[in-house]
Every structure is written in structure tokens, then in C-alpha cells.
Simulated assay, not measured.
Amino acid sequence: MKRGFDLTCYLIAGRSSCGERPLEEVVRLAVEGGVTMVQLREKDVSTREYLETAGSLKRILAPAGVPLIINDRIDVALAVGAEGVHVGQSDMPVDIARRLMGPDAIIGLSMDTDAQVLEAETLDVDYLGLGPVFPTNTKADHSEPLGFEGFARRRGMTRHPSVAIGSVTARCAGHLRSLGADGLAVVSAICRAEDPAEAARELRRAFAEEKE
């Protein structure tokens, strides 16, 4: 049976996103602050390095009951016993990912267009990534920013739980929740924060304060 999961404060991190600070330290502090899910996203490392990093994060997250999601690399997810994978539009198709990962895995999918959101209604995915809400430097090839209006439009098009992603901060967290966001997916807001634990706490507090 698939475990429950909480999208409220969803950290996406890799070694490069953490600057000089060790990834494991950032993740450990973020979990102390209340991060509810962690996605490991590494683009320019070897398979062995990816495996070692994923294994390190799994050892940190498992005792806290926080799911580990692996970006794209289903082989790595299976090897370390990660709870799920996140795929993009050019990655492995969702139906194949589901077959490989099994019915209990958490599978997320990034959305780049309205048409993709509509198509996802027929897919066996657990959540969608809707964005970027605002311009972001953490993903060079991102699509046109949605803004609040575009996010609300796409959120209204899908039955799937959805996270807002793309330069999301505590300042806009409450408003995004009022527009239907089930959680916030962040990189820099936590990875580049002086205190990742406090940054996670602030994001959660702000998201809980729903604003019109």
C-alpha cells in the first residue's frame, strides 16, 4: 500500500545548489526545520557519485520518515530504495516509470504547458510540479514563468496534487496556497539560506497562513 506523503515543504537539492556547504548538512538542517519531502537532483555527476549521494540522503531521511525522491534516475532510486522519482517531459515516460518503480512508489511529473497538464489527467502520477511561477536561475531551460494567474489556471485544470515551483519564497507562500497549491517546491530558499532549518520553518509558517 502506498505510503502517505506531504508536499507542504518540498526541498529539491543537489551538491551544486548548496554552494560551499555540504549537501548532507543542508538536508539534515532542513529536516530539523520541517521539510516534508526531499528530491535529489544531480545533473553532472557519475552514476557512482549519484548512488553514493542518494545513499547518504536516504540514511538521513529514513529515521525522520521523510520520503526521498530521485530526479530522473530510476536506476538510482531502485538501488537505494528511494520512495519515488520525479520525471520531466523529456525523461522516461510515466507509464514505464510506474512499471519499474511499482504501484507503491511516489511519482511526480513536471509540467511545461497547459496541454501537458490536461494529458496528465490520464496518467498514474501522484503529484505535478507547476511552474516556474517566477523566473529562476536554478533551471536554465525553464519555460515561460506562469505568475500567480498562470499558476491558478493550471492548478484548476488538474485533479492531481500540485506543488508550486520557481523562485518560490515565504513571501508568496500563503497566496500560492490560496490559489490551490498543495505545497512549495524550493531550491535556493533553503539551500542558499544562512540557516536552512529556520528557512524551512518560515516556509511552513507562511504556507499555513493562507492569504487571499
Rank of each mutant, 00 (worst) to 15 (best):
P63K: 11
L11D: 03
A199H: 10
F148A: 08
G131E: 04
L100Q: 05
G131M: 03
R155F: 04
S162K: 06
P67Y: 03
A77Y: 09
I96R: 10
L61T: 04
A208W: 05
S162L: 12
V117N: 00
L68V: 06
G108P: 11
T36G: 08
H142K: 07
M101V: 09
S17I: 07
E209S: 13
G183D: 06
P145I: 07
V27Y: 05
C191N: 15
E210L: 12
D112A: 13
T158A: 09
F148L: 15
V45Q: 09
T136P: 04
D104H: 13
D112S: 15
E49N: 06
R3E: 15
V66P: 01
A97K: 07
L7V: 11
L100D: 01
V31Y: 02
R98G: 12
Q116V: 09
V80F: 10
L184A: 11
S167A: 14
S162A: 15
A105Y: 02
H160S: 11
E202G: 00
A199K: 11
M157T: 08
D6V: 07
K139D: 08
V186Y: 08
G33K: 08
A62L: 09
V125N: 00
A164P: 03
S110M: 13
K43M: 14
L51Y: 08
D44T: 12
L179G: 07
L68H: 07
A200Y: 13
L176Q: 06
V35W: 04
A105F: 05
A152Y: 02
L179Q: 07
I69E: 08
V80N: 07
I106E: 05
V117P: 04
E83M: 03
E144D: 12
G108V: 14
E119T: 14
D95P: 06
E210T: 15
L118E: 11
S56Y: 04
K139A: 12
A30E: 04
A181R: 03
G147D: 03
T113N: 00
P196K: 06
G65V: 02
F207T: 03
S110K: 10
R59L: 05
P132H: 06
L11F: 02
